[in-house]
Amino acid sequence: MSYPNQNPYGQPQGPQPGYGYPQQQPSPYGAFPGGGMMPGAPAPYPTVMPGGVKAARVMLFVLAGLNLIGLVGAVALLGSVSKASKNTSEYASSDSIMAMNFGKGLLIAAIVLIVIFTGAAITLGVQFANGGSGVRVGAIIFGVANTLISLMTFPIGLVHTALGVMIIIFVSKDDGTAWFNRPRY
């Protein structure tokens, strides 16, 4: 039996069960026409560490390694200055002795600063995987302090300056903010 005005190779006429528009899945971001996110709705939280955050983490570990190399050099220099100050003649001027003592004090301060920055870089880098917004703020503060101190030793500290600025940028981006503000269950 054939029905008039019906093409067996065309689209079916009228509503058919199981045919028509595909069923839309409910959106986890709220009902908005088109199935997308509502304007102004917060971005979904990432489940994998974004590339910029991974890069900032690697830069923290690189800075820690460079600091360890600098620590070895500073300790060796302190040893040589101490040895030189012990080998001074008894006829040396008080200005040269005072300069050596000032140099030793400056090197000791630099060693303490290097140890603090190395420990902070390693601690922050390790905490990137599970840390919250405090780790993000700590990384930004570390980047600023690292940049400011490395500017004092500009030609030598150029790598530290560049890495400090890049850490600040990568951690402050939107994907970095979303990573550190994600819910941890």
Rank of each mutant, 00 (worst) to 15 (best):
S2V: 11
P4G: 08
G40N: 09
M1C: 12
F154Q: 03
F61D: 09
P28H: 02
R182V: 09
L148N: 06
M166I: 05
L66I: 08
I156M: 08
G18F: 01
S89V: 13
S133A: 13
Y185P: 15
T161L: 10
N130C: 01
H160L: 08
F170W: 05
G125R: 01
A43W: 10
P33C: 02
S150G: 03
N7W: 06
S89M: 13
Q16K: 09
P183S: 00
F61V: 05
A110V: 15
P46T: 04
R57H: 00
F61M: 11
A129L: 13
F32N: 14
I116G: 01
A84E: 11
T47D: 14
D174M: 07
D175Y: 07
R57D: 01
I116V: 09
R184I: 13
N5G: 00
Y29F: 12
V115R: 06
K83L: 15
G105P: 00
R184D: 00
M49K: 10
N7Y: 05
A120H: 03
G103L: 10
F180Y: 04
G30K: 04
I69V: 13
F117M: 14
L158N: 05
P44C: 06
P26K: 09
T147Q: 07
M166N: 07
P155H: 06
I69S: 06
G79F: 05
A55Y: 00
V135W: 01
P17W: 09
Y3A: 15
P39F: 09
Y21W: 04
V72A: 11
G10R: 02
V159Y: 00
Y29Q: 02
T123R: 12
G103F: 04
W179D: 08
Q6Y: 14
S80K: 05
Y185R: 11
A99M: 11
S27C: 12
G176N: 01
F128Y: 04
I168P: 04
Y19L: 02
N7Q: 04
Y185A: 12
P17Y: 11
V159P: 02
G138V: 00
V62T: 08
A129I: 08
A129G: 12
N181I: 10
P46V: 06
L71P: 00
V137S: 14
P44S: 06
P44M: 05
G30C: 06
L124F: 04
Y19F: 10
V115K: 06
T118Q: 12
F170R: 05
A110P: 06
S96A: 15
R57K: 08
G73A: 10
A43H: 11
K104N: 09
R136D: 03
A56Q: 01
A139G: 05
Y19Q: 07
N7V: 05
Q127M: 07
N7C: 09
Y3F: 14
G131P: 08
A178E: 12
Y185H: 11
P50V: 04
M166F: 12
S93V: 03
Q25Y: 14
P26W: 08
Y29L: 01
T118D: 13
A41S: 14
E90F: 15
Q6W: 13
Y91S: 14
P28Y: 02
F142Y: 13
Y9R: 12
S150H: 03
P39D: 12
S150L: 03
M98L: 13
S133T: 15
F142Q: 02
A84C: 10
P155R: 04
P8L: 07
G36W: 02
A121V: 01
G131L: 07
V137L: 11
V126M: 02
Q24C: 14
